[in-house]
Structure formats: structure tokens, C-alpha cells
Design a protein around this nucleic acid. Sequence first.
DNA 1: CTTAGTGCAAAACCTTTGCAACTCT
DNA 2: AGAGTTGCAAAGGTTTTGCACTAAG
Lengths: 149, 149
Amino acid sequence: MAIDMNDIRQKFQEKQYKLTPQRQIILQSFIEHQDEHLSAEDVHVIVRQHSSEIGLATVYRTLELFSELEVLQKMDFGDGRSRYEINEKSTPHHHHHLICLACGKVKEFEDDLLETLETTIARKSNFMIVDHQVKFYGYCQECKISREE
Amino acid sequence: MAIDMNDIRQKFQEKQYKLTPQRQIILQSFIEHQDEHLSAEDVHVIVRQHSSEIGLATVYRTLELFSELEVLQKMDFGDGRSRYEINEKSTPHHHHHLICLACGKVKEFEDDLLETLETTIARKSNFMIVDHQVKFYGYCQECKISREE
DNA sequence: CTTAGTGCAAAACCTTTGCAACTCT
DNA sequence: AGAGTTGCAAAGGTTTTGCACTAAG
């Protein structure tokens, strides 16, 4: 698990942010939905199921805050809303997203090959690269098959 | 130049779309702004400067159509609006985007290394990959320097 | 107690859509 | 002529913001 509560508690203290129940519950949603890519609305629904009523505006503000603190990572899959997942940047393994153009499903794929590419590009471009995001578009196994019929 | 007017004319004929002046003017905007990543609003401003009044809705519909026909490529740099650029997918050279976290500038970088990665991932994941999009986040040369001071 | 956070409703944005008028082919 | 296209205004959907109230440190 990539989430270290003590680490987070410390980050909050440093910047004098408060670790409110709302924020803890929202974080909890991501821990319970590790391999999903939740939108603000998704999170709002989930916390509501836990019988906690949290305002949608608070959800947005919290997601923004967690992104800033690099606890979550904001991403975009082209469906008109931002999605978030736990930021595992600290771990050595990056993962990429395979997005199915037919059914919209997003599959994850582990790979480090891009690290090398990143170093090369950083050197050639004079950019100081701190992160990357890769999306592959195509057809998943199921949709690939049904398209061939 | 990656735009072949005859090719486009043919694509339009096949699907019985009409090559209206509005569509030509919008396409022209992209030809005149090759290495920018124009938003719908950007395009609307540009055509207006050419003293052509085109409705914003038409701009949106046209951008959508061109994306569908793979004349333009829709992309997202996380600034809350879609951006478009001429689709050079047909050429062998892909380029990636380096996005500066400080000033927001987007720099392009040519590289094919990802082709290999795409093949590998396609094989391992059972996905039929047809396209990819890579974004690197970091600090451009200027912002990198000012951050060190 | 003091400063930050919450909830609500309203506002701000970007994008899409319905429809009557219009225009390529 | 006829199917596709435009422009406008209205509607839709996501995200942000102002403000009075509340709660964490």
C-alpha cells in the first residue's frame, strides 16, 4: 500500500492544514477503490453510501488539495471530467493506462521502460522532467474480438 | 506539411459531408498555427481576426468533425478545455509534449522510441493499440533557472 | 480561541443541442 | 431539390466561489 498515514499527517501539519473527518473519509474512498479512477461525483456517491453527507464542493476542494500534496494524482481520460487515483509516484513502478476506444474501459499496465526515455528526453530538451503520463488508445480483448465478427 | 487537401476533399465526399467555407477557414487556422495547440475559443478568435464571423457552436462542431476524420487530434493539457492540433499520425514521427508546471508552456519533442514500447505493451496486454499520447511534466529551461535562485 | 474548513446556493465555464434559416453538391 | 450545415440562444454538465457557520489544532 502506498498510503502512509503518518506521512500524510506530517504534510498536513507542515502547511497547517487540518485533517478533518471529511478529508479522511474521502481518502478512505480511494484506499477502498485502489484500482479505479474516481471522479468527484464518484467519490461523492461513495461517501454518501458510507452514510456520510459531504458537500460536493468539499469533495472538489479536497481532491484539489490532495493533488497538490501529491497524495492523489489528477488525470484525464477524455470523458469530460477529472479523475483521480492514489499517487504511487514514490514507488519505483509506474503504470500506464490503456483506454479502450469501444467500451471506454481503462486498464492498467505496469512498466518502467519509460524511465529511460524520460532521462533521454530531459537531457535533449533542457526540461527538468518530474513526471509523465502515458495513455494508449486501442481496443481491449473483448471489443477487439467483437469488432472482428 | 501534413495536410493534403485532396485527401481531405475525398474523405468529405465519401461521407457526404460538405466542405463549407467555415470548415475551410477553420482548417486554415491550424495550417497558419502549426505548432500551437488551439482551443475552440482560440480558433474562434483567429477566424474573427480574418474578419470571418463563425459561430462558436460551428467551431465546436467542426473541431469534432475533423477529429473524427483524423484531420485534427484532440488533446488535453489539463487546463480545463480541449485543444487541437493537426494530426501527423500518418507520418512516421510522433512527438510528445513537455508541459511546464510553472509557466504552462507546452514544448514539443520528437521521438519514436515509444513505438517499441507500444509493440511490447500490445503483446503483453492483449490490447490492440492504435494510438498513444504522452505528456511529460516538469520545468522548462527558464522556469528551472528562476526556481533555483 | 484562532484559523482553516464546510455546506449551500449561485455563478462561472466549457460544450452540446434544438430549431429555423440557409447553402453546398 | 434535398441533405447537410449554420447561427443563435438555451440547456447541460463539471468545477469554482462567496459567505455565514462550524470545528480542528
